[in-house]
Write a protein that binds this DNA or RNA. Structure first.
Lengths: 157, 157
DNA sequence: AATGAAACTGTCGGGTT
DNA sequence: AACCCGACAGTTTCATT
């Protein structure tokens, strides 16, 4: 199954304005509304579109602090507990198993440095097996996209 | 202006299903459709909801490789060019100015190791002022949320 | 993939607590 | 101020060509 240029444009438009009407989308694509809706439905069925989300402003919600935390686990047997704790913690946005000196890289977002301190000392370091953490605080964010690059899929948009 | 529990629930629902109808949302909130639409409109006006996006599956698009790259710039005067290159590169999802040994932390997503190699050697290292990069490859992703934590805003959902 | 009809949704006004 | 109700325009959806 191929992804054509119209699919790319559809994805691009729906990433920018996820609640746009099929009629509006159809206008941008040069199609009729049912045809546009059909294409979107197929993209959903193929799993390319997972769903739709409201984009929230972290700052407007008072979440001014972003940080990346590297975590080292001493023993593989502690993994289960660590992963469960990660899932349970709302402040941890992302958790990746990575190559390099440490085992996991977390992206966290919280209100202020006190909350970050509590997260590191009371939650992360409390988990059995966490022997080391290293924290990078974000001073400013230059770019932050959720959407993967679409350019590599087509040359002529 | 306060954010009440109904707002929290509204945000939570719209993060899961951003295209849900006002009637459906209203049902979940125990309100009428116009009242629910009113609340959403106010959240949008306050900047708490920035917009809506389709969630795309990186894997379904063939973007199987995620990595974090630390970048060191030798001189502040090279910043402008670096930031411009970052914005122009579709494979770079995020770019944060961070504390620590290096200056910037990038999150990138591409097709395979060859594309990553090209990104690092032909694009990043080609930028004037980039003296060092350090790459962590993501082996697996345990958790990946865009949504900031909402729990700290209310105790009783 | 486009058209046309039926059902639904979003939106606006007015009225209520 | 926040919410509910009723009505109309616009939209989605289905069948058909």
């Amino acid at each position: 199954m191929e992804i054509d240029d119209l699919d790319i444009k559809t994805l691009s438009l729906l990433c920018q304005r996820g609640r746009m009407t099929w009629a509006e989308l159809a206008g941008q694509l040069g199609l009729s509304a049912p045809a546009a809706a059909d294409r979107v439905k197929k993209l959903e069925e193929r799993g390319i579109i997972n769903g739709y989300s409201a984009r929230l402003s972290a700052e407007a919600l008072g979440l001014d602090l972003t940080a990346f935390i590297s975590v080292t686990l001493d023993q593989p047997r502690h993994r289960e507990g660590f992963l469960a704790a990660v899932q349970a913690s709302a402040e941890i946005l992302e958790c990746h198993h990575v190559t390099g000196d440490d085992d996991y890289l977390l992206k966290v977002r919280c209100c202020h440095t006190r909350a970050l301190e509590a997260l590191i000392t009371e939650r992360l370091k409390a988990i059995a097996g966490v022997v080391k953490t290293r924290t990078l605080i974000v001073l400013s964010t230059v770019k932050e996209t959720q959407v993967p690059s679409l350019d590599h899929l087509s040359e002529s948009l």
